[in-house]
Design a protein around this nucleic acid. Sequence first.
DNA 1: GGCGTTGTTCAAGAGTTCCTGAACAGATAG
DNA 2: CTATCTGTTCAGGAACTCTTGAACAACGCC
Lengths: 179, 179
Amino acid sequence: MSERLERRVLQACNAVGTLNEYWGFKSIMGRVWTLLVLRRRPTAQSEVAELLGVSKSLVSSTMTELVGYGLVRQVSEHRNAPYEAVLDIWPVVTDVLRTREWMLLETTRLALESTREELRDQPDSPYDLERLEMLLSMVCAIQGLLRLVLSIRMPGSARALADWIKSVTELIGNLRKLP
Amino acid sequence: MSERLERRVLQACNAVGTLNEYWGFKSIMGRVWTLLVLRRRPTAQSEVAELLGVSKSLVSSTMTELVGYGLVRQVSEHRNAPYEAVLDIWPVVTDVLRTREWMLLETTRLALESTREELRDQPDSPYDLERLEMLLSMVCAIQGLLRLVLSIRMPGSARALADWIKSVTELIGNLRKLP
DNA sequence: GGCGTTGTTCAAGAGTTCCTGAACAGATAG
DNA sequence: CTATCTGTTCAGGAACTCTTGAACAACGCC
């Protein structure tokens, strides 16, 4: 059993963990998920804890969370059944965007619109209606982009994904000629 | 001076603050920037502190940070000169993405590639080469998308932005016919 | 110059989040 | 049935971020 390989795998798990920590998830979730992806066979919590060098209690709660998100599943309903990673994560990503992100944008939009109504009646206040409308149109633009992204049917398989990205790239290459 | 308007403005600032807190910035930065955007005229730190109901020390350090990002500027070089918001934030956004996000992705990619080299020599380890290559292609795909976004020349004015988004939307509408 | 206002710096408090260890519960094997 | 292994729960510790208040420095006005 190669010591070096284990170290490299750990590094990879940590890198992915750091990456999705930056996207608002806990680092440990990314580490566990990545480990399960890389493992050839379903793996028990105790082994995950040992491989990652964290406590089994942390693994337990993280597994619950991951299963809740649909990023990981147990191979059977037995209490001690091992876990495997779900590889098609696009549904999860869109779901998170749809709930969290959309709600935040909607709240912001509504707050700005309330302010606009109030501001319309007071033309000589220290606040600028035009600037507010600019902010509002930015929020709406972002909402539009988000709606766009959510409407995309991303290919489930990784192989198809690469091709998909490529065609999108070509297509959007035309955008530079637009403005 | 309308009490209600002030409350609405505060709500709007808080909403934007919450939004960009979710994107990895401090909430207070969004609140200050939004307030400066909405204000018709450049505003002194003391007034910002009073309007937002936070300490002047917090406003001071936040201003330093915002100026550092290029999201806000002082109208003159005088020590006590008031501040105004920079409205064209696209350069800042791309800059942040280019540094922070790109570096994280690159680190992850390199870690995965090291692991792949190691794994190639050990076909009977508990780790799966194919799965790893799938992860790697996902990271590369995301890097591709990021490169794409960074190459976009976003219109500076908000008015143009809305039109721009609209044309992008139409263009990408074709994507659904692709797969 | 003296005084009030404005901005800066820094130590410390408040509040969060992440993680652990211990106690408990459920399953399996001998 | 007992012993052992695995997973769950929860109180608490460690580390971190956000924010404040106090002390200090710079500027303007009288």
